[in-house]
């Protein structure tokens, strides 16, 4: 039976090991920030962090999470202090319908951990989340702004 942490809290999972993490988060933990868009790892709306890496929770079965540390959008900010990616999203006013945006933010937050200053080419290559509303222009600007904010904060 997998034991894992979600946003720092330890949980014991004893249900169907084949159930995707997304449904555990949304329907059993009440963490609804991760969204369902395709259920097949194709859109990224369900992106969370597993051990610090971006992971599509709709295709991540619970069985694969023994000992894992999961962070969702609800655990990304430090209390009322938003994560630099969230700040950048507000500053650039990225969201339209907003449905894809938690997944986008989680994907970008993970990207900035391994690539502190992604180029446009890096963004094109590494960000594969779908935004049906077409917020890509502002989203790209927000990634650059987040990189600046984050390095500014760190220094």
């Amino acid at each position: 039976m997998p034991k894992l942490t979600i946003n720092g809290q330890t949980v014991d999972y004893s249900g169907d090991p084949g159930m995707p993490l997304l449904w555990y988060l949304r329907d059993e933990q009440g963490l609804k920030g991760a969204k369902f868009g395709c259920g097949a790892g194709l859109c990224g709306a369900c992106t969370v962090h597993v051990n610090g890496e971006a992971r599509r929770s709709c295709v991540t079965p619970m069985a694969a999470l023994e000992g894992a540390s999961v962070t969702t959008i609800e655990g990304l900010s430090d209390g009322e202090t938003l994560h630099p990616v969230q700040e950048a999203w507000l500053a650039e006013d990225v969201a339209q319908c907003g449905y894809c945006q938690t997944g986008q933010i989680m994907a970008v937050a993970a990207l900035l951990e391994t690539n502190a200053n992604p180029s446009d080419g890096d963004i094109d290559e590494s960000l594969t989340n779908i935004c049906r509303c077409g917020t890509y222009y502002r989203l790209r600007k927000a990634v650059h702004r987040a990189a600046e904010l984050k390095s500014g904060r760190a220094s």
Binding site: A34, I73, T102
Partner: peptide
Amino acid sequence: KMKNARAIVTGE
């Protein structure tokens, strides 16, 4: 800016 943007970026 969009009024409900903060709720969106926090997942609320």
